[in-house]
Every structure is written in structure tokens, then in C-alpha cells.
Design a protein around this nucleic acid. Sequence first.
DNA 1: CTTCTATATAGTTATTTTGCTATTTAGGTA
DNA 2: TACCTAAATAGCAAAATAACTATATAGAAG
Lengths: 115, 115
Amino acid sequence: MDDDALSTADLLRALGNEHRLTILEWLADPRSHFPEQRDGDLVDDGVCVGFITDKIGLSQPTVTNHLQCLAKVGIVNSKRIKNWAFYKLAPERLQQLEAALSKVAATASRIQKSP
Amino acid sequence: MDDDALSTADLLRALGNEHRLTILEWLADPRSHFPEQRDGDLVDDGVCVGFITDKIGLSQPTVTNHLQCLAKVGIVNSKRIKNWAFYKLAPERLQQLEAALSKVAATASRIQKSP
DNA sequence: CTTCTATATAGTTATTTTGCTATTTAGGTA
DNA sequence: TACCTAAATAGCAAAATAACTATATAGAAG
């Protein structure tokens, strides 16, 4: 929606937290980190808040907050099934950020290597 | 020095600020953004604090603070010549971060594309 | 030796972030 | 209908961040 007013700094800030990075790594490969879910597939639908809460050792509202923070910048997407909320990683957004960093790094390398 | 206790989150947090990102882009290609310096080469030695301060429109101590923040995580290096402090981008660090993001994104893509 | 200049440090304040507990909401289930 | 269960929201406190002004420091210049 209001996706456009989103800066690279917003994205980086969303990733700049140990807990959120941990969650991100879990969501990148959910089957390696969580048991199967009754309603909703770990990979296709995402991971429910409860599983993440149990594993990370923070309160449920705090975890919801971290997930919403990631969702706001489009790094994860959420979906409701029954009364579960499933969060799933959006790799495109990460690749987008990767490209932005790559550009700066490449410019600097090019400039610094010049005669 | 105590470079090892540095997490990816620390790096991302350092980059997650509009002003610091702006400075980074300037430092990636200093000759496109700053006039030549009397003592110290823009590319080889880095850009002095004063130039950055003038261009960004923040107070000098605030700029020093941002630069030290970037230096602490190794994104820039600093060098003193006479009584100037020159800050220079370290592209390796950015590439390192890029690689870390790339890994997570690649894992997620691989997992999500599986049958 | 004094003065000037560039940067760093100290100290303060406002804002943002991160966490919590308590409560609300909304969808199932007995 | 009344009751669970999962997640979201509200409200609050502590800590971190980002900015400023004033001051200290260290090297150069006179």
C-alpha cells in the first residue's frame, strides 16, 4: 500500500535488531526450526506467532510487535487462518536491500581502485 | 581491535539512519560530492569532518558522532593528518554485510521454491 | 608562548525503541 | 450461549538514540 514512502534506512533499521534477525533466519527455513502446524503449512503459509514466541523466549505481545515491525517494511507477509496469524519471509525485499548495499559497495570499490 | 564481538545486527543498526546512509553514499564517491582538500586526498585519505558537516547541515559534534558510529562497526576508517580527521569508506565491510543478507535471502528462496 | 582552528568530549534534552502486563478482539468449541 | 484460545492492542517504564550547546584538546601558525 503505502510502500513507496519506505526508505532503505527504514529497512535497515527493521533488520538492526538481534531478535528480529533471529526470527528472520528461522523464517527463511521454517521446517528446520519449527514442528509442523495443524492449520497452515510452515513454508506455504508461514509460521504462527505462538511457535516463535515459545522459541524466542519473549512475551507474545513483544513478538507480535517485532513481526509487525518486519511486516511494515515488507520483509515478512502475514496471513490469518482461523485464529492463527502466520508470518512468512519475503525474500524479494531482502534481495532489494542487498542490491542497494551492493551498489554503494561497488561504487566505493571502483573509485578506490582507480589510478 | 574488539572487532569480533560485532554482530550483523550492530552493522545493520549503524546503517539504519538516513543521515549515516547519506554520508556513506558521499564517502563512496568523494570527488563527486566534495571539493579537493589541501591536506589529505579525498579518495586515498578520506573526507574531513568539516566538509561533511557543512554539506549535511547538522552540528559538528553530531556529525562526529555519526562518523564514530560508523567507525565502531568498521564501515569507515579514520585517519588524522595535522588537525584534520579524515573518514574513508571500507567497502569490504559492506560486502560482508551484503553476503550475510544474501545468504538468508537465498535460503528462503530455495526453500520456498521447493516442490 | 599565545592564539587559532579542527575535532572530540561532556552534559542535557526530546524522541524512539524495546520490553512488560493487562485487556480486547475474533474465531472455534462444548 | 458461554467459554477457550490465539493474536492484537493499550498503556506504561526503562533504555537507547539523536540532536543540541558548551567546553576541552591538540596541532599549527604567528
